[in-house]
């Protein structure tokens, strides 16, 4: 059995090895952008079914972001929404035959978590100023500085590992079941994977939102309860 931790390059563009997750990501990207373009062309004041669903999704996202950040969701909508939709579609793409979800590989999850990490710093600096943002690391006392720094790293890693572990384990278990029992048996597990995938996409987006919200609001009210979320 192949190790789930190793990715093999499919082909090379010059010196750059292009692996299977990258190809899958491209396909998902193409799908999403195509769908967005089609939807954008048919946007009207009186929504059809597709537009109603899209508005429902964006509205729910706005509500969730507003709940967590406690302010206008507009600056975070694009990032959080994109992460949620991409992770959701990527997780569910595992249900298609022959496709391995990009999120089942550490690299994609690392890229997502990196995005969240950078966005956290960006929004923290933007709303509190550079000095203000750096000061939040000395909360509640300066002794906590190393711990706060480590927390930034570990929570990002936990973000990576959580998504990776959930999706990868699903794929891995299905592979094992397939090799042991054969066709049709892993279908309940695949259904469970769909649920897990949706929940994990939601959790990833919400945690990213929580991190950003904590960075934004820490300057305002010291000591957010969300900071220690793993």
């Amino acid at each position: 059995m192949n190790s789930p931790l190793v990715v093999e390059p499919v082909f090379h563009i010059g010196p750059v090895p292009v692996t299977q997750p990258v190809v899958a990501t491209w396909a998902i990207m193409a799908l999403m952008v195509l769908g967005a373009l089609l939807l954008k062309r048919s946007l009207t004041q009186r929504p059809g079914k597709v537009q109603a669903v899209a508005e429902l999704i964006t509205g729910a996202l706005d509500d969730q972001i507003r709940d967590v950040v406690q302010s206008d969701p507009a600056p975070y909508r694009v990032l959080i929404g994109t992460i949620f939709l991409f992770v959701l579609i990527a997780n569910w793409s595992g249900a298609l035959p022959g496709v391995e979800p990009p999120t089942a590989h550490l690299e994609t999850d690392a890229a997502l978590a990196l995005l969240v990490f950078v966005a956290t710093i960006y929004h923290g600096v933007r709303s509190n100023g550079l000095v203000g943002y750096l000061k939040t690391f000395a909360e509640p006392t300066w002794i906590m500085i190393p711990l706060n720094l480590v927390e930034q790293i570990t929570r990002t890693f936990s973000l990576i590992i959580r998504l990776f572990g959930n999706v990868m384990s699903g794929v891995f278990v299905i592979g094992i079941m397939l090799s042991l029992a054969g066709l049709l048996v892993p279908i309940p597990l695949m259904a469970l994977d769909l649920l897990t995938g949706a929940v994990q996409a939601y959790i990833f987006a919400i945690l990213g939102c929580v991190f950003i919200g904590a960075a934004v609001s820490e300057g305002r009210d010291a000591g957010s309860p969300e900071r220690s979320a793993s």
Binding site: S158, I161, R162, G165, N166, S169, T196, V199, Q200, Y202, I203, I206, S230
Partner: peptide, 11 residues
Amino acid sequence: VGLAMIETMAI
């Protein structure tokens, strides 16, 4: 959400 968090430990 909480279940997913707990499940992360197993993961």
